[in-house]
Simulated scan of single mutants.
Amino acid sequence: MKCREPRLKSCCCCLDLRAGCFFLAMFEIFASALGFFVAEDSRILLLGRTAYMLHFIGSVFLMTSIFVQIEALVVIYMVTNVVHLIFCTVFLIEYATYSSFCALETVPAFFTLTLSIYFWLVAFSYWRRLQWEHNPEFDE
């Protein structure tokens, strides 16, 4: 008996996965651009901004994959999303402990990190759908 990973059939219960990936890529591009300007001087500031920059590039790749339907571009987004989740979580923890904790800056970053988990699941489901569209026999 095979264990199947969770797959979504739609984004936000009302959008097709392709359209949902388009809107989430636009949101992630905007959120990553804002992430460049978060925080003051910090030991991990460069790390956090690098993670946002990588995630920005991954989101652009996801946007591109919607139009050209290349599976590898979705995989790049998913990898950069995991890197974004790891490094920005470390950045937020470091920022909260060593700097003056500012809710105005950390709450939006925490909100986008929480949404990134759901966005990763949507992108993963879209990637699985692309694999199936290119090879209908592919159904692990």
Rank of each mutant, 00 (worst) to 15 (best):
I70Y: 07
F110S: 09
Q131Y: 00
S42Q: 11
L62V: 05
F61Q: 03
P136D: 09
I29S: 04
F23R: 04
F111M: 15
V107G: 05
F23N: 03
C102L: 08
D41Q: 09
T106N: 13
T106P: 01
A123W: 04
Q131R: 11
T89Y: 00
E94I: 00
E94M: 01
C21R: 02
L47C: 15
F56T: 06
L130T: 06
C88M: 14
F27T: 13
V60I: 13
P6S: 09
F37G: 13
M26P: 00
F101T: 08
Y98V: 00
E94W: 01
L85P: 06
D41T: 04
R49C: 00
L47E: 13
R7D: 06
S42D: 06
D139F: 13
G35V: 00
A96P: 01
C88F: 02
A72P: 01
C12I: 07
A19H: 11
V79P: 05
Y118A: 06
E94Y: 02
F124K: 06
T112S: 15
Y52V: 02
P108F: 09
P108A: 10
M53C: 13
Y77V: 10
C21P: 06
E71T: 12
L85Y: 07
L115M: 12
F124H: 03
F30R: 03
A96W: 06
E71H: 10
A109C: 10
Y77P: 02
L113A: 02
F27I: 13
C13T: 05
V90M: 10
E133F: 04
L85W: 11
Y77D: 07
M26G: 15
N135F: 08
E105P: 00
F37D: 14
E28M: 14
L130F: 02
F22V: 13
C13H: 05
I117E: 02
F111H: 14
L47Q: 15
T112W: 14
E137G: 07
V82L: 14
A33L: 15
E5Q: 10
M1W: 04
C13K: 09
M53Q: 04
A39W: 01
E94C: 03
F27R: 07
S116D: 12
W120N: 03
V60D: 01
L62W: 01
D139H: 14
T89H: 02
G58A: 13
F101S: 12
S10N: 14
F27C: 11
I44H: 09
G20R: 08
F61T: 06
S32N: 15
F101D: 10
S99V: 03
L130Q: 05
M1P: 05
R43I: 03
Q69M: 08
L15M: 14
W120T: 03
I29D: 06
S42A: 11
M1S: 08
I70M: 11
D16G: 05
F138A: 13
W127M: 13
E140A: 05
G58I: 10
V107I: 15
A25C: 08
T80A: 09
F27P: 01
V122W: 01
E137D: 14
F91A: 10
L54V: 12
M53Y: 02
S42W: 00
C88S: 13
L34P: 01
C14F: 08
M53F: 13
T114H: 05
L115W: 07
E94T: 03
A123G: 15
F36G: 09
F22L: 15
Y126A: 12
R7M: 12
V107C: 11
A39R: 07
I117P: 00
V79M: 14
P108W: 06
